[in-house]
Design a protein around this nucleic acid. Sequence first.
DNA 1: CCCGTCAAGGTTTTT
DNA 2: CCTTGACGGG
Length: 743
Amino acid sequence: MSLLESLNPEQLAAVTLPRESALILAGAGSGKTKVLTARIAWLIQTGQVGPNGVLAVTFTNKASKEMLHRISTMLPINTRSMWVGTFHGLCNRMLRAHWKEAGLPQAFQILDMQDQLSAIKRMYKVLGIDAEKFPPKQLSYFIGSAKDQGLRPKDVEAHDEYHRMMVRLYEAYEAQCQREGVVDFAELLLRSFELLGANPALREHYQARFKYILVDEFQDTNNLQYNWLKRLAGPQGCIFAVGDDDQSIYAFRGARVANMVQFENDFAVQNRIKLEQNYRSVGNVLKAANVLIGHNKARLGKELWTEAGEGEAIRVYEATSDQDEAAFIIDRIKKLVLEEGFSRSDIAILYRSNAQSRVVEQALFNAGMPYRVYGGLRFFERAEIKHALAYLRLMDNADDDNSFSRVVNFPARGIGARSVEQLQDLATSQVTSLYRAIHRLEGRAQAGLKKFADLIERMRFETRGLSLADLVDKVINESGLVAHFQADKDGEDRVENLKELVNAAASFAIAEGYYQDAAATMVDEEKLITPLADFLSHASLEAGDNAAAAGQEAIQLMTAHAAKGLEFKCVFVTGLEEGLFPHENSIGNSVEGGDGTSVEAVEEERRLMYVAITRAREQLFLSHAQQRMLHGQIRYHLRSRFLDELPEDVLKWLTPKRAHIASQGWDALDSKVWGQSKTLNVGYSNKTTKRPYDIGTGVSHAKFGNGVVVAYEGEGDDQRIQINFGRQGMKWLMLSLAKLEKF
DNA sequence: CCCGTCAAGGTTTTT
DNA sequence: CCTTGACGGG
């Protein structure tokens, strides 16, 4: 059978497993997606299951689109009715189909993170909560983690006043969401989970239907997602889980690698198949990756190999500064493009945190090299788009106070904070929404508010029977949004974006089969949803591309996190410094491993580094800088321990490798000290400023023992030197008095 | 109501 | 350094 022909023995074994649960440990570049899609295609093609009997779940929209695309090239079937999507997308689908049983209004809206925060702030106003004492972000986090544990307010144990308050706020938030007919991301999952729990008939229906469940990036599942899968699969369930514990980089947002082992126990997994042959990178890159990740203790164990040649050595550069690092990168890129014939889009520059992109961007800009930065605002997150969506949502669901508040006075129509406050009071006392409260204002009715309500009503009436795109077009004009931004001298882009929203609606309508003339309000036996509601869900669940627009032939800039799942011929991993990568917040910290054990937080950083270097197919460059500008201060960092963990024989140091770190031992440096360096006067007035020891060199002190010079401060007799003495802590010593020796 | 100024604070991110 | 949010004056 042709679809099995290109598989290696392990891949073939995985694809053709009988109906039993299995864990596939798939290393970076080992053909993970290929195996997933081939298994689905094989199951269907051999008649073991129909397209409707398969459910495949991923974490990102991109991954699910890719999967659908590949399936449709392998099989002549309509994939649109298949349950392939993200956890949130599939839960949304289920809740749309069973909104009544789930206790939701038919037109329930989805809150993204921004929306959730503004909902919390609005609630604080009504309840008179001090946002300083209980930061909205903290509440959002609290609610999110509770839901991830499957806990409702009544289930959360609070042992102190602060947490009792958080629980009360959680409860109030939940009541508000319920009244307004909105759900946040975690709620989609929890509702769906509870729906299956409370409804045996429904549960059994889905358990019988989905004979085969496949999960991508299994190491990224959180507690709730795991339990949702378990419940959906049922006692006879068959789950095909694909993941890589070495690429688990999202523990900080609740992902539990421990789910992999728990899965093997819960589902009596007989087969743990390892995919270790790598089809992406040259030998040297792979060797570096293997040795690096070998430093982690918490691993299931796996070693990648390749048939490809060794390739170039991994080149390492120690820059004097972040500017110098950028200059090095530009220089190498020029060589790669002009002399070695790589295309700019083959080249990626990776960093630990977004702030690091600035210096590189500047340098690329000055060198006239096109580049593309991932990680900005996404299309559906832009303010003007959010405004347009708010009008649409309010038309669809009159109880959506979030949307109401966003646009009631935007564009400005003379409705001040005072009027809205009064309206809120009335709405609160009558337990209704802001929009509905307008009609109860009676004599005190504020003319502006009435006019606003009329506007919404009119738009609702006038858009009846229009196609989705025409509807959106009508609303952006009728609402005054387009006129408002046209009048703004800097509003050109925003007008363009609003028009782009009309296009997005049109493409969505076509993709989903609503077509242009869809007076159709109901489509798809399973969706039971209007095109508008469907589009609004889509906008919340899929915020769109987050890359800044640029020519296709551009150098790619992104964080190591954002690079997961991608590959490039040439990769630069930058900022390899203690405190940056590994990040200072991880150094010396332990975190709960998900199964009660304690794991070094730096292991996740190491996995991130592993992800970063395994993005490279042919050439890999690593760099660090002696000093860099961070938070407006010059900071000095030692080179990353990760550089010292790489095997020397695959490295080629372009600058001399300095030896100060290896002799030191990392235990001495594990306190959180790197963030405390002081600003220095650099480059001038060093008449009275001496630096007998270079930053980064080791010194010993009679009382404190060995340490590393981190910074200098002051001048002349007042000049002080900062030294990290490891366990003894960070000390500032008077240079004139301290008795120090180089070691 | 809009715009400026000032203070605070600043991993990683998808849905 | 640079972005974000909170206030107060015009």
